[in-house]
């Protein structure tokens, strides 16, 4: 495990922000850390970077205790927390050079990073004049500058346009697949993480509600049969009469819990025989977005 926390707890004043969190982030994974705003994601990230002092529990990163190995662990982490921390009176390049100076990274790496996040043209412009998306990209470049083993990114796609979001996603996938990095990325949008994450942790009100691989998450969502017909209400009544449960009904389709392929065929035949025209019939997984809402609302 690259990140392994046990019973991690933290409170601000009387408010418990993180409750007995046990995170397990395997090496080479893209771990999507999901939760609504205010769920405790940023606080957890600050705990992982030793910016906040843990009340209870332990944090091990790269198999070492964080408190006693702070510097050697931090030397292998690149991070972006909340809005990117950028000196607005310096240019984008100067921001990177300053960081390179601190981390003893060769200056050639600065140009590589500028190219990677497509800021080469704006490199000499004052960072204060950057758009939110450009700032975010500079923040990502700063995090990647020391070529860290572990990337911890807090809402990295905040403020990016759809193209920017896709680029960041592809970049992270490339880092994990080609360069064997591990990425821990928080988000309040499942859709954003769904397409790249290999593992997911869902947090709400400081509690971890789900943790596992993306396949585990899909597995707990019940598969459904979605049937597209012309007269959905009639068909629904007809199916109910024949002992099927209809879970959802809309203007152009209805859904029935999936049990087997044979059951799907049976429904199709039944409807056809009774002169209900079936436009389409197929198996669907429950929308992860809905699942996410279910999990967070149940708590």
């Amino acid at each position: 495990m690259v990140i392994d926390t046990q019973g991690l707890s933290f409170h601000f004043g009387n408010q418990q922000v993180v409750k007995s969190l046990s995170l397990q982030v395997p090496e080479g994974s893209i771990y999507g850390f999901l939760g609504p705003n205010g769920a405790g994601k940023t606080t957890t990230i600050k705990l992982l970077l030793n910016l906040l002092k843990t009340d209870q529990g332990s944090i091990r990163i790269f198999g070492k205790d964080l408190v006693t190995n702070r510097i050697s662990i931090l030397s292998q982490i690149g991070s972006l927390i909340e809005q990117p921390a950028i000196y607005s009176h310096l240019s984008g390049r100067e921001n990177l050079i300053n960081r390179a100076l601190l981390l003893q990274v060769p200056e050639s790496r600065v140009d590589e990073m500028l190219k990677l996040v497509r800021l080469k043209e704006a490199a000499n412009k004052k960072a204060g004049k950057y758009s939110l998306g450009m700032k975010q990209r500079l923040g990502i470049a700063l995090a990647l500058l020391p070529d860290p083993q572990l990337l911890i990114l807090d809402e990295p796609t905040n403020g990016l346009d759809p193209n920017g979001i896709i680029e960041v996603r592809e970049l992270l996938i490339r880092l994990v697949n080609q360069h064997k990095k591990t990425v821990f990325v928080s988000s309040h949008l499942l859709a954003e993480v769904e397409r790249m994450a290999t593992h997911v942790g869902i947090i709400d009100k400081g509690e971890l509600l789900f943790q596992g691989s993306i396949k585990d998450l899909e597995a707990i969502s019940q598969p459904q049969v979605q049937i597209e017909v012309d007269t959905t209400v009639d068909v629904a009544n007809f199916l109910k009469k024949h002992g099927f449960t209809v879970t959802d009904i809309s203007e152009d389709h209805l859904t029935v819990p999936f049990s087997s392929k044979e059951q799907m065929g049976e429904i199709n035949t039944l409807l056809n025989k009774n002169n209900y025209q079936v436009y389409s019939i197929h198996k669907i997984q429950k929308d992860l977005e809905k699942l996410f809402l279910d999990i967070t609302q149940k708590a």
Partner: peptide, 18 residues
């Protein structure tokens, strides 16, 4: 103030520097 303004305290203290 240069760090307060740019919100860079968190970055400074998450670098591998004591």
């Amino acid at each position: 103030n240069i760090e307060h303004k740019a919100e860079t305290w968190k970055t400074l203290f998450s670098l591998p520097i004591s």
